[in-house]
Amino acid sequence: MASGVQVADEVVEEYKFIKKGKKYRYIVFHIKDEKKICIDSSGDRDACYQDYLDHLASLGPDECRYGLYDFEFEHACEGAADTKRSKLILMIWCPDTAKIKKKMLYSSSFDALKHSLEGIGKYIQATDMSEAAPECILEKIKSTARS
């Protein structure tokens, strides 16, 4: 079911910068006026995952967002030293405490965003901080990592 929410051009443009240029560590998107997915904020390359989580927490308990994060982690291939890998994750952040209408809008519009941003490594759904915790994300990434 299409929600009719459009993805703003800026979203796709800036996505190229995080994917190729490594301009940002993360970009947070929101749905503006129930019509368009727009950029809400972004974090520089030196931002860490905690900065991203702090931003989500600062929005309050009833705000939903999408977060694109360039997640770096150590990955050991068999018989090789640990190598730093990075994977782009796209998170839908819908706290349990958010209004049902808002959660439905974000859920139904997630596909539009997924289709606009090609080459995402992992999709994550989080309803609270424990689901968004770095070790939880890492586990999800590694469960599908190709060695």
Results as ranks from 00 to 15, higher is better:
Cys136Lys: 12
Asp128Trp: 04
Ala76Ile: 08
Ile100Cys: 08
Ile37Lys: 15
Ala112Phe: 05
Ile89Cys: 10
Leu68His: 00
Ser86Cys: 13
Ser109Val: 11
Ser116Thr: 11
Glu135Leu: 14
Ile100Val: 15
Asp111Thr: 14
Ser107Trp: 14
Gly60Lys: 03
Val28Asn: 05
Tyr52His: 12
His115Ile: 11
Gly60Asp: 02
Asp44Gln: 09
Asp111Gln: 13
Cys94Arg: 11
Asp62Ser: 14
Thr97Trp: 05
Glu78Leu: 03
Cys77Met: 08
Glu78Trp: 01
Phe110Asn: 07
Arg25Glu: 10
Ala98Gly: 06
Ala80Cys: 02
Met129Thr: 09
Ser109His: 08
Ile92Asp: 01
Lys99Asp: 11
Ile92Phe: 00
Lys36Asp: 04
Asp40Gln: 01
Met129Glu: 15
His75Ser: 04
Gly60Phe: 02
Asp128Gln: 09
His30Leu: 01
Tyr69Leu: 11
Lys103Glu: 04
Gln125Asp: 13
Cys38Val: 13
Lys102Trp: 02
Tyr26Gly: 12
Lys36Asn: 01
Pro95Gly: 07
Met104Tyr: 04
Phe71His: 11
Ile137Phe: 00
Cys64His: 04
Leu90Ala: 10
Leu138Met: 11
Phe73Leu: 14
Gly67Thr: 03
Glu34Ala: 15
Leu113Gln: 08
Ser109Tyr: 07
Ala112Cys: 04
Tyr52Val: 14
Leu105Val: 09
Leu113Cys: 12
Lys35Arg: 14
Met104Ile: 05
Cys77Ile: 03
Ser109Thr: 09
Glu63Leu: 00
Leu53Val: 11
